[in-house]
């Protein structure tokens, strides 16, 4: 793999026609060479975005981090997104050796596959990439994605007994005397 990935020019025509199959990017090709299926997603900033299956996440990230020519060895952030019909766990990767290398890896859990009162489950990357530790806790706290295998999955920003996941679309904020939502408020 000697191409310089993530140049903005090839990304622009893809944006115009999202329904068609997007061409496989350099990182997707690298992964498929190593037997990992991935799907290219449109992205507006010109950074290659791929989707992988939850079961493939660990081997994908390990492969991208450890291979000599790719060397995406910096996990910038792990974030959670509540899309209308999926829960996304997003991994931004970057390379210390070549600052132009960037990749976004997404894991999408369809909401239909999550049973009522259950949390969507994504394998944790903390065991082999400790930078993800607090990020995954935050994503669990605010979006409610359960990272299976996380050593200490507990709320990090909200109080430990907070009810609900505030960044979800269906979140209802508390109604009590600390805000104006309560008709019986003290003022």
């Amino acid at each position: 793999m000697s191409e310089t990935p993530a140049s903005p020019s090839p990304a622009n025509p893809e944006k115009a026609a999202p329904p068609t199959e997007l061409p496989v990017g350099p990182y997707g090709q690298f992964l498929s060479e190593h037997g990992i299926p991935s799907k290219r997603l449109p992205d507006s900033t010109g950074v290659e975005t791929i989707e992988v299956e939850p079961a493939q996440l660990e081997v994908t990230l390990k492969r991208l981090r450890n291979s000599e020519e790719i060397a995406l060895d910096y996990l910038v952030a792990v974030s959670g997104v509540d899309n209308t019909d999926t829960f996304d766990s997003v991994y931004h990767l970057w390379s210390y050796s070549d600052p132009n290398k960037e990749l976004v890896v997404k894991v999408r859990i369809p909401k239909a596959s999550v049973a009522a009162e259950q949390l969507p489950e994504v394998p944790s990357v903390t065991p082999f990439w400790s930078a993800a530790n607090w990020h995954e806790r935050e994503s669990y706290d605010l979006v409610g994605i359960r990272y299976v295998g996380h050593p200490y999955l507990r709320r990090i920003l909200n109080p430990w007994d907070w009810e609900g996941y505030p960044l979800r679309r269906d979140y209802k904020q508390p109604v009590d005397s600390l805000n104006d939502k309560n008709p019986h408020s003290f003022r």
Binding site: P166, Q173, P174, S177, L178, N179, D180, S185, F186, R187
Partner: peptide, 10 residues
């Protein structure tokens, strides 16, 4: 906001 006390006099 869901997380901020809406006025400390509460």
């Amino acid at each position: 906001s869901y997380s901020v006390v809406q006025g400390v006099d509460r």
